[in-house]
């Protein structure tokens, strides 16, 4: 032979390695104490604090009283989407950039897509577990009446899946923002915290001034929280929303736009390493 032949790699390995990455990611996720607390358990801790602190207050009308736990549950589910996806992944990936993990991958035949599948799979796995825990604690410990209509759960399913995907992709896209792995927490957590405060997670959205509601409406968290309220709050709460309805088409459109923005930003900016030139 006179020409150098490069053996081709087996087809389908991107998916196979992606699944292997998901197992690896989930395993290592639960071995880091700080991530488990600040991303995974945080909404549950907040739900518990609000439910206990405001246990004497009613958040509904006199005719249909609503407990603090029931009032805060949708917001905490939305916060869980943001924390498990955007906050967790952006800090995680920035850290892996900083500590040389990505540089090591860059020198192996691991496809970038398999790496992303692993990260997104980890967000799905931890996000589902987190939502299940929130619903369980709300339903069993705080006696929140969960919806019985299948249509409500169908809404929950698509809001959750779209929300968790968007949040995960935005997390990957934002991972390039911190300049070092060490500064990642300091850069990302304030962004996530501000979003949570203006998007109706900790403060009732209807209490915010209109201009701040308009600012929040640009970002996806407000819409995820609204989608969750549509599932878990009584119908008459819809009148408190901007426009007086749950606006599920709006939830779909704005969140989907952010998903596309995140995908485009990831496609354009993500590199294993910054090559100098």
């Amino acid at each position: 032979m006179t020409t150098t032949t490069i053996p081709t790699l087996p087809a389908g390995r991107t998916i196979k390695l992606g699944l292997s990455r998901i197992r690896y990611e989930v395993k290592t996720y639960f071995r880091q104490g700080d991530a488990v607390f600040f991303s995974f358990l945080f909404p549950l801790v907040m739900l518990t604090i609000f439910s206990v602190a405001f246990s004497e207050q009613s958040f509904g009308s006199e005719a249909a009283p609503l407990s603090a736990a029931a009032f805060y549950l949708p917001g905490m589910l939305a916060a869980g989407l943001l924390l498990s996806g955007l906050q967790n992944l952006s800090i995680d990936i920035a850290g892996e950039k900083g500590d040389g993990t990505l540089k090591r991958f860059a020198g192996t035949p691991l496809p970038v897509l398999s790496y992303f599948i692993g990260k997104i799979g980890q967000v799905f796995a931890t996000g589902i577990l987190q939502a299940a825990m929130l619903l369980f604690v709300a339903g069993v410990v705080f006696q929140v009446e969960l919806p019985s209509e299948p249509a409500k759960w169908a809404t929950f399913a698509w809001v959750f899946l779209l929300g968790v995907s968007t949040s995960a992709i935005l997390g990957i896209a934002l991972s390039g923002l911190p300049r070092t792995g060490k500064s990642a927490t300091a850069v990302i957590i304030p962004i996530a915290l501000v979003l949570q405060f203006i998007s109706g997670v900790y403060l009732g959205f209807s209490l915010l001034p209109e201009w701040l509601q308009n600012v929040a409406s640009v970002f996806p968290l407000k819409w995820m929280a609204q989608g969750m309220r549509a599932v878990f709050l009584p119908e008459d709460f819809a009148s408190l929303e901007q426009g007086g309805t749950w606006d599920l088409p709006g939830v779909l459109v704005v969140t989907a736009i952010w998903l596309v923005v995140g995908l485009a930003a990831t496609r354009m900016t993500f590199r294993w390493i910054r090559k100098d030139s």
Binding site: T4, I6, P7, T8, L9, Y24, K27, T28, R31, Q32, G95, E96, D99, G100, T101, K103, R104, G107, T108, P109, L110, P111
Partner: peptide, 30 residues
């Protein structure tokens, strides 16, 4: 490198290399 321009080497090329970098500092939770 192995008949390939290292500036454009793909995954099949990387599968034939072993790289021990000068420094590593991964969190090592495995």
């Amino acid at each position: 490198v192995l008949g390939v321009d290292p500036g454009t080497g793909g995954l099949a090329w990387k599968a034939r290399l072993g790289i021990v970098l000068q420094s590593t500092g991964e969190s090592g939770n495995v």
